[in-house]
Computed example of a mutant assay.
Amino acid sequence: MVVKPEWLRVKAPQWERVGSVKDILRDLQLNTVCEEASCPNIGECFQAGTATFLIMGPACTRACPYCDIDFEKQPKALDPTEPERLAEAVRRLKLNHVVITSVNRDDLPDGGASQFDRCIQQVRLLSPGTTIEVLIPDMCGNWQALEAILAANPEVLNHNTETIPRLYKRVRPQGKYDRSLELLQKTRQLAPWVYSKSGIMVGLGETDAEVRAVMEDLRRVDCDILTIGQYLQPSAKHLGVVEFVTPEQFDAWREYGASVGFLQVVSSPLTRSSYHAEEVRALMAAYPRLPAKTALI
């Protein structure tokens, strides 16, 4: 058994603030990946008044053995009121930056692209000053669906690579490493004004050289932002942790990421895809892009 080290302990949150966020989510009947995926940072994020919204869920059509989101429930039809309820939550929480993600919906012809589009539009309507990040599935390689999401003009398009190629069959059996890279490459080609982002988990048996190779692959498709975090086993039925990676190794990956050209690398044991995602606003100010209406496709 691998013993969890001291550096993975999180501070107890102020439950008064956490409770107020939960009240809004319950009132508006919204799901968050913070809760559904058992994120270790839920207290910190809820205390700060933010959350990563999980749309079209909580049932997922894939059964990734690392993920705590339910894949045994039958996915439901899309709720036409969800975009309005999500936008109202963003307004009530006064979010400067919002992350919208989803379960995999391989049962839908467009993978749920139309729902992402509606959610973005509604947030723009109620909170025009809020920057929007979407964390999307691979859409089964449906690049028309990707184009539909990008046409709604999110500031950030995030798609997680999750792990190294050698571990894909075990960690992400229904995913394809090359398809994930192609999605990020298509994002740059279709919408050069959008900041592209990806993330990987470590502690599943990868080597330092393999992690660096993934970082290099991501830069070859011009990915802007990378997150690297420690995998934590949600339950005994999920994949086990092979290794708890040291903070020093995370620091080394951050430095390497800067050397190969990422605009931002967030790398630490507790980093998750949307952890401190609002920091992208400072990045956008430092590295401005052409607005959608004038960018060349």
Rank of each mutant, 00 (worst) to 15 (best):
V2T: 08
K4F: 09
L8Q: 06
R9S: 09
K11L: 14
A12H: 05
V21R: 01
K22R: 15
I24A: 06
R26Q: 08
L28R: 04
C34K: 06
C34D: 14
C39I: 14
G49P: 09
T50Y: 05
T52L: 01
L54N: 10
C60V: 15
C67Q: 10
C67D: 15
I69K: 00
I69N: 04
F71D: 15
F71Q: 07
Q74V: 14
K76M: 15
L78G: 02
D79C: 02
D79L: 02
R85H: 10
A87C: 12
R92A: 12
H97D: 08
V99I: 13
T101E: 07
T101C: 09
V103N: 05
D106N: 09
D110F: 13
A113R: 04
S114V: 01
D117F: 08
I120R: 04
R124S: 08
P128N: 10
P128V: 10
V134W: 00
L135E: 01
P137T: 12
P137C: 12
W143H: 14
A145V: 00
E147I: 00
E147L: 00
I149T: 10
L150P: 04
P154H: 00
L157V: 12
N158R: 01
R166Q: 15
L167W: 06
G175L: 06
L181P: 06
L184G: 02
T187W: 03
R188I: 10
W193P: 00
I200N: 06
V211K: 01
V214K: 02
E216S: 15
D217Q: 07
D217Y: 09
L218I: 13
D222M: 03
D224P: 05
D224V: 01
T227R: 01
I228F: 11
Q230P: 06
Y231R: 02
P234T: 04
K237R: 07
V241M: 12
Q249H: 09
D251I: 03
Y256H: 15
Y256G: 10
A258W: 12
S259N: 04
G261Q: 07
F262I: 07
L263N: 01
Q264R: 09
V266K: 02
R272H: 09
S273I: 05
S274F: 03
A277W: 05
R281E: 11
A282T: 08
L283G: 04
Y287A: 11
R289G: 00
R289N: 05
L290T: 09
A292M: 09
K293Q: 06
I297Y: 13
